Computed example of a mutant assay.
Amino acid sequence: MTSLTQPLRDEHAHLLPHIETLRTVADTLGHATPGTLSTALADVQLFLSDHLIPHAEAEDQVLYPAIARVMGAPEATATMSREHVEVGRLARELDTLRETVDREGLSDERQTALRRVLYGLYTLIKVHFAKEEEIYLPLLDQRLPAPEAEQLFAELAHAHHRD
């Protein structure tokens, strides 16, 4: 039986390979050629800015208010929104580091900073997704009527694709 929240679970499944790339790129620091590293970091930044951050913004606008309503607790997802803020901050830090590495090369200090940011993003996002899928989505599956769920995910898709 398909759950009401399957669309979000499917989106997470689509995003997860890209999230794994954060760890893979961090693992290869110090071993990858400058050109390979530059391309990998540019790809990661593109994924973050074009896919993950819009996903998070859509959740903040549509999903989390619905969860708060279903739970009867307006601040029920405040910590989740705070994690979105931190993902954005780390993505900006990664972009700055990437530009510096492209311009000035990969020093030991920059390598350490890149590794910290990439592993930090990886861990934060993996735990964030786990919390959504293990705590919040089951609540919606149990408490949200099917017509409301359909409307919610239509609004979520619309918010995700807004400019």
Rank of each mutant, 00 (worst) to 15 (best):
S81W: 09
H84C: 00
H84I: 01
H84T: 01
V85Q: 06
V85N: 08
V85H: 05
R89S: 09
L90S: 05
A91K: 04
E93W: 00
L94V: 09
D95C: 02
T96D: 14
R98K: 15
T100W: 06
V101H: 02
V101N: 07
R103P: 02
E104M: 03
G105K: 00
G105C: 02
G105N: 06
G105M: 08
G105E: 07
G105T: 05
S107L: 09
S107G: 04
S107N: 08
D108A: 14
E109V: 12
R110Q: 12
T112Q: 10
T112N: 07
A113Q: 06
A113N: 07
V117M: 09
L118N: 01
L118T: 04
Y119A: 03
G120C: 04
G120T: 02
G120H: 00
G120F: 06
L121E: 06
T123P: 06
T123R: 15
L124F: 10
L124G: 07
K126M: 15
H128Q: 07
A130F: 15
A130S: 08
A130V: 12
K131D: 12
E132M: 09
E133N: 12
E133A: 05
E133H: 05
E134P: 00
E134V: 11
E134D: 13
I135C: 08
Y136M: 13
Y136L: 14
L137P: 05
P138Q: 13
L139V: 14
L140M: 09
D141Y: 01
R143N: 08
L144K: 01
L144C: 02
E148N: 04
F153A: 03
F153P: 03
F153M: 10
